[in-house]
Amino acid sequence: MTRFTPQELEAARDRVIPDVVAGGLSVLFCGINPGLMSAATGHHFARPGNRFWPALELSGFTPRLLKPAEQEELLTYGLGITNVVARATARADELSNEEFREGGRLLSERVERLRPRWLAVVGITAYRTAFGEKRAVVGPQERTIGETRIWALPNPSGLNAGWTLPAMAEEFARLREAAGVPDLGAPPGRSPGRVTGDPPR
């Protein structure tokens, strides 16, 4: 993995990285905003310790653990990635509520254009702020965008100590089943959607 100096990471601040999207996806995952490591590499969820990619594998969305640099492979599984706010910051708390609300408006326009079956917002606080749903909890939401349903997922950041990786993967698996996406990682003897243990190292 490429190592960046603090100066190189800081130079990536406010950078925008391309979405991984196509029309008619089964699930469009939506991060909060790119971190500096993602902005420096051009790859979503690139910070070491982020559990997004392991959760995808453990939940059966992908047949193996993808590296952030392999993000375009998601499209072959009917999956994509975008963000609520496009600009990169070191921490999500550097974003204002106004940026989140504007991000929610732009995200809605994007979803109306791309028409995924599900929008999965990865971070319940970001979802609440962007869409004004202060009491929303993790799981499927009543709100829709056109025909697209919404699922709020836990933030996969390593800083989110309230969710273990197995628990997070269980929630991802609930979404996968609701979206009708086949379990690509189920070995013989494991029921689809049943997640146990930690990913292989």
Rank of each mutant, 00 (worst) to 15 (best):
P140L: 05
D183S: 10
G146H: 11
G132D: 08
W53F: 14
P182L: 07
A40N: 07
P188F: 06
G60Y: 12
N97P: 04
A39T: 12
T89A: 13
G180R: 06
D183H: 08
P156V: 01
G139I: 11
W53N: 06
N83R: 00
R64S: 14
A40F: 07
E57T: 09
P54K: 04
L28Y: 00
T125H: 13
S108I: 01
L65A: 09
T196Y: 13
A92T: 14
N155P: 03
S157T: 12
T129F: 12
L175R: 10
T125Y: 09
P199D: 01
E73T: 13
D93W: 13
G78F: 02
L95W: 06
P166H: 03
P187S: 11
G197N: 09
E10K: 12
T5Q: 05
H43M: 06
P116S: 06
R13P: 00
R105F: 00
K67G: 14
L114G: 09
W118E: 08
S191Q: 15
P166W: 02
G103Y: 01
D198I: 03
R128F: 02
E72V: 11
Y77M: 09
M1T: 09
L175G: 08
A40K: 03
P192D: 01
A39Y: 02
T164D: 10
N50E: 15
L114P: 05
L107N: 09
L175D: 03
I124R: 11
V111Y: 07
G23S: 13
P199G: 01
L165F: 05
I145K: 11
L74M: 14
P68N: 04
F4G: 00
T5S: 15
C30I: 00
A90G: 11
R115V: 07
D93R: 13
M168H: 07
S26A: 15
R91L: 14
R135C: 01
R113S: 14
S191H: 10
T62L: 12
V84F: 12
V121F: 09
L58Q: 15
L165I: 12
R51P: 06
M168K: 03
E170G: 02
V16Q: 11
R128P: 04
P156A: 00
G132M: 07
R110E: 13
R13N: 10
R15K: 13
A92Y: 05
W151H: 14
A11C: 10
F29R: 03
V16C: 02
V111L: 08
G146R: 01
P6S: 07
I81Q: 05
G60A: 03
F131H: 05
M1I: 05
T196I: 08
G123F: 05
F100R: 04
G180Q: 12
E171Y: 02
A11P: 01
T89V: 15
D14C: 00
